[in-house]
């Protein structure tokens, strides 16, 4: 599984609302498709995404198969202090892909 691609500004001022973009490579197999023999290809998607800042929740989402492959998410966060954003993607198979980004807030 490849490393997620995340954009978080390196610096911000206290009280700023910053833009976060996150993308992870994943087939998002919908469970609707059939293989060459006509058998349904079982569903395997990222079903949950969570973002925390200094361990308090910022944004999360429940994802269904109608989200495109290599799921992309953009959202906002209000930062008052320097710290670390933690990101987690949960796969149907139980794997959790994790990543971190720090930000300096003046």
């Amino acid at each position: 599984m490849s490393k997620p691609r995340i954009k978080v500004p390196k610096k911000a001022s206290a009280g700023d609302i910053i833009i976060i973009k996150a993308l992870v490579s994943h087939n998002m197999e919908s469970g609707q498709r059939k293989d060459d023999d006509g058998n349904t290809i079982p569903r395997e998607i990222i079903n949950k995404f969570e973002c925390f800042f200094n361990d308090s929740p910022v944004f999360s989402c429940d994802i269904d198969p109608a989200v495109a492959s290599n799921p992309f998410l953009e959202f906002r966060a209000k930062v008052e202090e320097s710290g670390v954003f933690k990101f987690a993607w949960t796969d149907d198979n139980g794997t959790i892909i994790e990543a971190e980004k720090s930000i300096e807030v003046a």
Partner: peptide, 30 residues
């Protein structure tokens, strides 16, 4: 929600006061 996909659910975004702004974007299948 999408009313003519195989299943209607697409995604549910959950916000908090740390979100600052209730904005979210993604890419979906139709």
């Amino acid at each position: 929600f999408a009313d003519a996909n195989p299943t209607p659910q697409v995604i549910t975004f959950h916000f908090t006061e740390n979100s600052g702004e209730a904005y979210a974007a993604t890419r979906m299948r139709l």
